[in-house]
């Protein structure tokens, strides 16, 4: 049975939307096991959302509509990005041409910006701290993403993520090309910091002073809170998907629109994302959190690798 490409497009979005909480839950479970705890149920995030959606939304005194709009805008952004990147198929879907990889990056950035704005709007010191930190480190992280994108761009002579994945699939040695390896490492480091992982941030911690991303959700409650949490789960899934399907393992994607192939693609994506999630959990578990002002060093290091990737390519050795 062959599906319309638009249906597949929709399935892409739904996959990210629906599987993201599952991924978060599984990672949380795995992490707990690593630390010798039993941990929450894998499906716990769904229960959380169910509960939160049933509650009312409280607004802090003096906050504007931005406070409510932020999570919604962010959520929408995270729904748009999956249309642009190779989530399930190895060939570009109709809406894939809507934006290139830079466009995807901008939309992700817009999501973070909306969240930060709504956090700043609360006038709560911790939330504002979180949003200002997130913005300043985000500003340092941005060039890394840009350089990664540039190096991908010059290697494939295109800015479409699909083309990059295709190049890698085409030959095994392209996987080992130094420029590609460096770009992948740099992107890995970016994902680490963007998803609020050690060494940048203790994502499950409760210490407000070290928080960045987590602090932004401090004042939210009810459905808005659910959208925020769900949004960040989706962001995590999107970043994982880019890392997997563009850089590391672009295999197992559907090459046709048959229902079977798409289903297999969904399963393989889930499997790969779980493996990657475990890797992140292990990284998270085996390093210490950096002091806040050392994070610039971390980001400088990632930047360096991203620039090296581009240089290595430009001088023709990679």
């Amino acid at each position: 049975m062959s599906l319309s490409t638009y249906v597949v497009q929709l399935i892409q979005v739904l996959t990210v939307l629906l599987l993201a909480p599952l991924l978060s839950g599984a990672i949380a479970r795995f992490e707990a096991r690593l630390q010798g705890r039993r941990g929450p149920r894998v499906l716990q995030p769904y229960y959380d959302f169910w509960k939160l959606f049933a509650k009312e939304t409280l607004r802090p005194n003096g906050s504007s509509t931005l406070f409510i709009a932020g999570p919604v805008v962010a959520f929408c952004c995270y729904l748009i990005v999956p249309m642009l990147i190779p989530v399930l198929t190895s060939f570009p879907l109709p809406l894939g041409y809507m934006g290139d990889i830079l466009g995807g990056g901008f939309i992700l950035g817009l999501g973070s910006f909306a969240v930060a704005l709504s956090a700043a709007d609360t006038q709560s010191p911790y939330a504002q701290l979180g949003s200002s930190r997130a913005m300043s480190f985000g500003a340092l992280g941005e060039p890394i993403v840009l350089f990664v994108v540039f190096s991908v761009g010059v290697i494939t002579r295109t800015d479409l993520p699909y083309a990059m994945a295709a190049t890698i699939r085409s030959s095994g040695s392209a996987m080992l090309a130094p420029a590609h390896v460096l770009a992948a490492i740099a992107f890995f480091l970016v994902v680490l910091s963007e998803t609020g992982r050690i060494p940048v941030e203790t994502h499950s911690g409760t210490l407000e002073l070290g928080m960045i991303d987590e602090a932004r959700a401090f004042e939210h409650s009810g459905p808005a809170m659910a959208l925020l949490t769900w949004g960040s789960a989706m962001k995590q899934m999107i970043l994982y998907t880019i890392l997997i399907n563009v850089f590391v393992a672009p295999w197992g994607l559907a090459s046709s629109t048959s229902a079977m192939a798409v289903l297999l693609a969904v399963l393989s994506l889930l499997g790969k994302a779980l493996v990657l999630g475990c890797v992140f959990a292990v990284v998270d578990d085996s390093f210490a959190k950096l002091r806040l002002f050392k994070i610039t060093e971390y980001l400088a290091g990632s930047f360096l690798i991203a620039v090296l990737a581009l240089l290595v390519y430009l001088v023709g050795v990679g």
Binding site: S173, L176, A177, V181, L182, V312, G318
Partner: peptide
């Protein structure tokens, strides 16, 4: 000219 896997590995070690 589309470097071989060997070349890539050697270069990668260099990197």
């Amino acid at each position: 000219s589309s470097p071989s896997a060997f070349t890539s590995i050697v270069t990668l070690f260099g990197v």
